[in-house]
Write a protein that binds this DNA or RNA. Structure first.
Lengths: 328, 328
DNA sequence: AATTTCGCTGCAAACGTTTGCGAGATTGTT
DNA sequence: AACAATCTCGCAAACGTTTGCAGCGAAATT
């Protein structure tokens, strides 16, 4: 343990603890000579203030909690990455917890956050989480809670999301612009609100044009299932495949590679993605960007607004962007 | 803020603070009746012990630090994911910091760790880090430091690594078994010890067989550069490409797809990987597995050993495994 | 010379816990 | 009935900070 404390320094220098404390934080009350002596000794002794003591005394932990289903997920980890960076730049620390999609662990993580007296919480709830009262309770005692990505239906909380409907609409419009005729659209878990939103927006956009695009939609819940579904649907000779997510895209691309189809000559592909996976293929897959990095920055600034006293409940979304990759 | 404290409970119940404290942790000195009353009130009041006060008092933070170049990296985030899980299961918290490959930020992160009085540190140093004294200093004051993946050359510290040399050897042997004749081997940053080890082991294994395999090696430092290099080397008609890492593999695969080459008919591919990326292609790329999850578990158990008092300095490696994917 | 002002520093309480020690009350033993 | 043993519980110090307040000597003002 690092046991250099203010007390220790004060004893060596024959000064009081309070003088040391003030000298170290450049308080105007302390003379320059004293400051210099103190700082010098502090550095040679590798003094580091004890964050626990400070938090205890000031009851301001400068610590955020972040609960997410899984760290090892392209979207979440870019989100986390950007939040972590913002935290560091603003003098905050971050405690990252995974729920593994288990509401129980989620509650446990929440408890950990409370024990550590976090200043604010970022949370992406698991699909199974129905009761968000524990989170709201945190908010009631003055700890801002920012829900991100998978957010509760409840309207009484701060949320930051990717623009689900808009993203799907943008993808649909890109397909329409390219005058595609037969589209296979693959979506994820039909129970998730994110799926519902994207499905509705996509099909609405495709169908509202009267240029008779033939649309086939399907739901799959894993990359492997998407691969199988694609192989199956390929028999119907679609000219375009829309993927709701990276997970689906990876399955689709395997099927396409397996069949030896050329993109975009034989078949076009478009997806909604963070951008990492689409860049792995040649040609790079055209995608509507939903940036975890941007979402992270947005979440952080929303947190800062709450901390600054804003009680305004808002639901923010990041705008999407079509990134042309040559696959459409 | 949650301001239910032992004191508050004690005042309501007309008991002393120490009695509350003991009752809550099931201390034998306290009667069952009292315990029951205390626990009951504590739960209705949403009491959560203040971790800062506990750490201050006990000087045992139950907090680990983890410093890594970047969270959004397939290998690191699987590592982190597994460490986080182990921490949670063992009652520890984890503070994750990114260095962004900057030694300056690394030092700053280290300072943060010290301020929070971490119990132990997991660290993967950035390639530019030359001076690891600050880390060793931490060790000197009794805080175990486990280096993982990119570890210093220094021999006086605990390290857990993937079996760099062995992995490369396994890949080389797989190539030999398949009777390949002309191999292009692409490696990463030539300055990294991981690169040196893999390069040496790979070339040694290939060359020690007297079956005259033609070997071309090259170094590239990004996916895009690997793509360009591959396009260039492809003119020499290699029958196999070995990639040192996922980053290189992604570049190679783009070049292969661009040229419309069939794997493995036209060209074989083998890589060293965590396993995620290889599964994205068809056929799935054959790879020697270096599991971030396993490495995380190993790192954690090594940490536990240190904490248990083991002063034995060890350099641990996880065994590798050839995963056949059909690309060789 | 007396008073004010100012620059520098120390005192002490407080944040919420844990824990060794001691004390009173109850029970059991002779 | 006297004593010991046991059960409950409280006191108080300590962990390392921050900060309002007060003190004190020296310089400046009257």
């Amino acid at each position: 343990m690092n046991n250099t404390t203010l007390k220790k320094i004060s004893e060596i220098l024959g000064l009081s603890i309070s003088t040391i404390s003030r000298a170290l934080k450049d308080h105007p009350d302390i003379s320059d000579k004293t400051k210099q002596r103190v700082v010098e000794l502090a550095t040679t002794l590798d003094y580091e203030p004890n964050a626990n003591a400070i938090n205890l005394r000031t009851s301001n932990s400068k610590l955020f909690g972040l609960i997410v289903p899984s760290i090892s997920n392209g979207f979440y980890n870019s989100f986390i990455s950007s939040v972590e960076e913002e935290c560091r730049r603003n003098g905050y620390s971050l405690m990252i917890l995974q729920s593994g999609d288990s509401p129980d662990i989620e509650i446990n993580n929440l408890k950990l956050c409370r024990q550590n007296r976090i200043t604010g919480l970022f949370v992406c709830i698991s699909p199974e989480t129905v009761n968000i009262d524990p989170f709201l309770k945190l908010k009631e005692i003055g700890v801002p809670v920012i829900f991100f990505d998978k957010v509760p239906e409840n309207n009484n909380c701060n949320k930051v999301c990717v623009a689900d409907a808009i993203s799907a609409t943008m993808a649909a419009n890109a397909i329409i612009r390219k005058k595609k005729k037969k589209v296979l659209a693959l979506f994820g878990n039909a129970n998730l609100s994110i799926t519902k939103k994207r499905l509705a927006a996509f099909t609405d956009t495709i169908n509202e044009k009267v240029n008779k695009i033939k649309l086939i939609t399907d739901h799959t819940t894993s990359s492997a299932k998407a691969e199988a579904a694609t192989l199956d649907h390929l028999k119907g000779k679609p000219d375009t495949i829309f993927c709701m997510s990276d997970e689906i895209l990876t399955g689709v691309m395997k099927a396409i590679q397996m069949k030896g189809l050329k993109v975009p000559q034989d078949i076009s592909v478009i997806t909604i993605s963070n951008g990492e996976i689409p860049k792995l293929y040649y040609p790079e897959t055209t995608y509507v960007e939903t940036s975890g990095l941007k979402l992270g920055k947005l979440a952080f600034s929303s947190m800062m607004a709450c901390l600054a006293g804003s009680t305004f409940i808002q639901e923010l979304t990041i705008e999407s962007l079509l990134v042309e990759g040559g696959s459409l």
